[in-house]
Computed example of a mutant assay.
Amino acid sequence: MMSLSNERLIHDPLEWDALVARYGLDCYYEYAYFELAQEPEAVPEMYIHPSESGVLIYPYLKRKITGTPFQDLTTPYGYGGPVFVGRWSNDQVEDIRRHFLDYCHAERIVSETIRFHPLLENRELGQVWCETTTVLQQTVTVDLTDSVETIESRFSSMTRRNIKKAVREDVTVRVAGPDEYDCFIRLYRLTMDKHQADARYYFTDQYFHQFQDGRLPAELLVAEREGKIIAGCIVLYGQQFAHYHLGASDPAELSARPNHLLFAEMIRRAKVLGKTALHLGGGTTRNADDSLLAYKRSFSHRQTPFTLGTSVLHPLLYRQLSEQHLTHHVPSSQDWFPAYRTPVRQLSPRGEQSL
């Protein structure tokens, strides 16, 4: 590994989380969140560079590219990206970027993918950091700085009616215990089956158990009816923000509108816990009329863009790896980055597709 001057690379969880606490970073920056990653041969790493202007803090996953001596960088599922503490000019960001690229070249890092945090406003300087930035979709945020009554008055009339219907149907919401995650996992997979979700959304049991053991500041909220859990959601809590992470519901119970009451109670709880905003995320597609996005907008009209930053650090290697990958597989997406990690359908020896 090359030597760094003012820069440091951090791998120790205690030192990592001490920096997260010191600078008040969100829960997506905690070491335990990086441990959630279902990425083979991925190592959490934090790049930190102090300067006269402040400090750059940039955690990411460094992944080996299978079958090669090369690596790439990505932020985990969720949101993150470099945080520029203090006042920074574009020139200062570009200068530190050159230092970081020296390190990347020495480590044989081919590409970099950043899912920018919609609430941190790190996208503007991130555009200087990255080769390319693209707004993928709008996401929905509930402002929690007003009173509960004011927040709920912004719900759509249909949503308010559905919340009342859930109450009439004797649906209740509570915080679940650690032993109730198995029920949520079952409902979650039923939900993914119903929506024919991509394989990457079928998280392992181990993924859910990492919430269960309390390493992350998270809660499982569940909606019950007649003593049966019929819906639930995992909520993450940072120092300032709350985040709707994953949700699930019993398809046979949707007529009781448990999700509407669940979301309303999730908003109330985040407010009680002193958070300034609850981020609900976006839709399942990039379409402006996406049904999940429309559902979330029925709780708040405040939209914040989700931006993807990408950089090809070794163009020749990137092209070779991508061509090799796509020669032997049928891509399930035409605009995946990096292209050599595009989800695929396997080709049989006769060129037939198989799952």
Rank of each mutant, 00 (worst) to 15 (best):
A218R: 06
F203K: 05
V167Q: 15
D179R: 13
S153W: 08
R168M: 10
Y201E: 04
V222C: 08
R225A: 12
V222P: 01
I151H: 03
Q210T: 03
V235Q: 06
S156Q: 06
R186K: 14
R189A: 01
F155W: 10
F241T: 03
H209T: 05
E152S: 07
M158H: 11
D193W: 04
H245W: 10
L221V: 09
T172V: 06
K228W: 12
E226F: 15
S157Q: 14
V175R: 06
Q240Y: 09
A231T: 05
M158A: 11
L144M: 11
V175F: 08
I230F: 02
I151M: 07
A197R: 01
L216Y: 04
R174K: 12
T204E: 12
V175Q: 12
Q210P: 07
V222M: 07
S156T: 09
A197L: 09
P178M: 14
Y202Q: 08
F184D: 00
E180H: 10
A218Q: 05
H243L: 09
H245T: 02
N162G: 01
Q212E: 12
K194D: 10
V171C: 06
R160F: 02
A223V: 03
E219C: 09
H245C: 06
C233M: 15
K165H: 13
Q240G: 03
R174M: 10
S249K: 02
M158Q: 14
I185S: 01
L221F: 13
E169L: 13
E149Q: 11
F208P: 02
M158W: 04
Y202R: 13
Y202A: 08
E149L: 04
V171M: 05
R215N: 11
K165E: 03
L190N: 11
D179Q: 15
F208T: 00
S156C: 01
G232S: 04
Y237W: 14
V173S: 00
I185Q: 04
T191A: 01
K165N: 07
R225H: 14
Y237V: 10
Y181Q: 05
A248G: 05
G232D: 01
L220T: 02
R174E: 07
H195C: 13
K165A: 05
R189W: 09
A218G: 08
F155L: 11
D179M: 08
V148I: 13
Q212R: 15
L144N: 05
V222A: 03
K228H: 15
Q212Y: 07
K228G: 10
I163V: 15
K194F: 07
G214T: 12
Q210E: 08
H245L: 11
A197Q: 04
R186C: 08
Y188G: 01
Y244E: 01
V171D: 00
L187T: 00
K164P: 04
T204L: 13
D250A: 05
C183H: 13
P178L: 13
I185K: 03
E149V: 07
C183I: 14
E180M: 11
A176N: 02
T145Y: 08
N162D: 06
G247H: 01
A231K: 05
Y201R: 02
R154G: 05
T204F: 11
P178C: 12
Y181C: 04
T172F: 07
Y202K: 06
C233D: 13
F184Y: 06
V222Y: 00
D250W: 06
V167E: 11
I230H: 00
D146P: 07
R161Q: 14
F208A: 02
Y244P: 02
I151N: 02
F241I: 08
H243W: 08
D213R: 08
